[in-house]
């Protein structure tokens, strides 16, 4: 789907990002040569298992990688003419919380437990837009209402611990969206929540995008969440992008053995009680720079060549690509993932 790329300039363009961390055992190469674009008004999902580098990618955009031990080795991230990786911390502070906001997995640890909801909520307005306090209060009430929190004026006087988990995550969202940022980065926003509350938050993200046209970068490990809200998907593994494409394509006809294996291992795709198709082995150790395809050891379609290729993403159209040269050349056809019918809830 070239829905976005034809008409628009990307809002965020990440090129060849490399991030590593110094540890006691040596340097860990957490993100290797990651490039992607995010267009205005789209929800881009970054999926991957733990340790795949999805969070590190987004933290480096926000300047949240602690240095030391972390280090951004190379790359650029253009957000409306500004390179987020090169700009001074003063410029970054102006962008963060105003043009780009972030919500985190655990709303309890990202809200200040000593502050009432009200002052926390209007902080970005007061700092970035210098909104007078009275007016900011009014906006805060509107923001809480828009994320579905009833009795907003009462909530403003409460402390975070007085709210439930879903309520806290909604406060976080209200806070992140109060300055109407062009880009919202959501790092596993629903992982700590119950399914019914998760459905509400996802609904909110989708609704927000439709209403304001803001872009969302959604980091998650849950393929179900991706299918639910994302327009496009980036699949990460061992610090690299293995596949990118529209959500529909990724689920219907995956273009990388890892993506297809991952989907085949979901219980919903099997007959009841049947043994699940598993991916043998473990993700590679990132302590050494990888050579070859990072998934080669666990791949069903491995050939000797796989340990020599550079493992880079081959773009097949402007926003669809695979890192598997064999799929690209049409040497292997990944079985279409069986859809629908009994396999779904």
């Amino acid at each position: 789907m070239d829905l976005f790329s034809d008409r628009m300039k990307p809002l965020l363009q990440v090129e060849n990002l490399n991030v590593s961390f110094q540890t006691r055992k040596g340097r860990v190469y957490a993100v290797n040569g990651v490039s992607f674009q995010l267009y205005p008004g789209e929800i881009l999902g970054i999926v991957g298992e733990s340790g795949s580098g999805k969070s590190v990618t987004c933290y480096s955009l926000m300047g949240l990688i602690p240095n030391p031990p972390g280090r951004i080795d190379s790359g650029s991230a253009l957000f409306e003419e500004t390179d987020l990786l090169q700009c001074s911390s003063r410029v970054l502070r102006k962008i963060r919380g105003h043009h780009i906001s972030m919500i985190f997995q655990d709303p309890m640890t990202s809200l200040n437990p000593y502050m009432r909801i009200g002052p926390q909520l209007i902080e970005p307005l007061r700092i970035h837009l210098k909104t007078p306090r009275q007016e900011a209060q009014q906006q805060a009430i509107r923001a809480l209402n828009s994320v579905g929190i009833p009795e907003a004026s009462l909530r403003l006087r409460q402390f975070p611990h007085e709210l439930s988990g879903g309520m806290r995550q909604r406060v976080m969202m209200a806070m992140a969206l109060i300055t109407e940022p062009e880009l919202l980065i959501a790092d596993e926003p629903t992982t700590a929540l119950d399914v019914t509350v998760q459905a509400q938050i996802l609904e909110l993200i989708r609704h927000r995008k439709e209403k304001t046209g803001a872009s969302v970068l959604l980091i998650t490990h849950d393929l179900g969440v991706v299918a639910e809200v994302c327009d496009r998907v980036v699949v990460m593994y061992a610090g690299r992008i293995l596949e990118t494409g529209s959500t529909r394509d990724i689920f219907k006809s995956p273009r990388h053995p890892y993506t297809s294996a991952l989907q085949r291992s979901l219980p919903g795709r099997h007959r009841k009680g049947e043994l699940l198709k598993t991916i043998p082995g473990m993700p590679p150790d990132l302590l050494e720079p990888l050579c070859g395809c990072p998934f080669a050891d666990r791949c069903d379609y491995r050939v000797p060549e796989c340990s020599e290729i550079d493992g880079e993403l081959i773009l097949e159209s402007s926003d669809c690509g695979t890192a598997c040269p064999r799929v690209h050349r049409g040497e292997i056809s990944l079985n279409e993932v069986k859809q629908g019918g009994d396999s779904s809830l």
């Binding site: 399914v195 019914t196 998760q198 459905a199 996802l202 849950d222 393929l223 179900g224 969440v225 991706v226 299918a227 639910e228 959500t247 529909r248 689920f251 219907k252 989907q263 979901l266 919903g268 859809q339 629908g340 396999s343 779904s344 809830l345």
Partner: peptide, 12 residues
């Protein structure tokens, strides 16, 4: 509960 569970199948 069943409806709220995210379904890894965009068509559904």
């Amino acid at each position: 509960l069943i409806q709220a569970a995210p379904n890894p199948n965009p068509e559904m």
